[in-house]
Write a protein that binds this DNA or RNA. Structure first.
Length: 212
DNA sequence: TAGGCCATCTGGTCCT
DNA sequence: AGGACCAGATGGCCTA
């Protein structure tokens, strides 16, 4: 907990602001919402201001042009509203290609996050909700700090054993590092999840924010 | 039903 | 020119 306390609240606020809308919330899972393999993805993104003759790509390849009809679309404009040289169909094709690439990039990012989840001390059973992205990152940071502290502890112990030096007893007993995300168990309760956040309360934790 | 979390699309910027 | 990265916007799903 100590490490998370070290993260200033205004840092969270600035992060929240940078993400806009409601980025922060409860520690919750999203297994039910992870459906990018054929997920919804059919969005009508700001149709009034953009060149969107067809719907959005909703497959993995990004080359879905079934609903695109260049004859129905307006002429090609750039982001300043100026006409561009590319035909609408070419523009659409390019856009779909870019979308697919971005989708792939985000999938890679999510795969990396899954890998991170798999190595941090958190319950991995199917009955336990998957950590959110932000919780994964925060707990990973916790875990790294805890490991660093444990390593330092071991070094001191080795030095003591080798040289007969006095142990620095200010450190907590081995394995009881204050930065360990959820001490004592691998299956955190809501309160334990809550305690992983700064100062005992956090806008990151719905359990905290629901407190009176 | 509101809020949280997410995937996706999109345009902008930077780099190769 | 094309790709990578980023952030904003949007809508869907889920939970309290």
């Amino acid at each position: 907990m100590a490490d998370l306390k070290s993260v200033p609240a205004d840092a969270y606020m600035s992060l929240a602001q940078s993400y806009g809308q409601s980025f922060y919330g409860a520690l919750r899972g999203a297994e039910g919402t992870r459906n990018y393999a054929g997920g919804p993805a059919v969005l009508d993104f700001n149709p009034s201001s953009r060149d969107r003759s067809g719907d959005s790509s909703d497959d993995q390849t990004g080359d879905d042009e079934d609903s695109f009809d260049p004859t129905k679309g307006s002429p090609s404009y750039d982001n300043e509203g100026k006409l561009t040289g590319k035909k609408p169909k070419e523009q659409r094709s390019l856009r779909l290609s870019i979308n697919a690439r971005e989708r792939r990039r985000m999938h890679d990012l999510n795969d990396a996050l899954d890998g991170l989840r798999s190595v941090i001390p958190y319950a991995h059973s199917p009955s336990v909700r998957k950590l959110s992205k932000i919780a994964t990152l925060l707990l990973a940071k916790n875990y790294i700090l805890m490991q660093a502290q444990a390593l330092e502890e071991m070094r001191r112990l080795v030095a003591y054993l080798n040289q007969g030096q006095t142990l620095n007893t200010s450190l907590p007993p081995f394995g009881q590092s204050s930065v360990y995300p959820y001490p004592g168990t691998n299956v955190p309760s809501t309160a334990e999840k809550c305690s992983a956040f700064p100062a005992g309360t956090s806008s990151l934790c719905k359990h905290c924010t629901d407190k009176p």
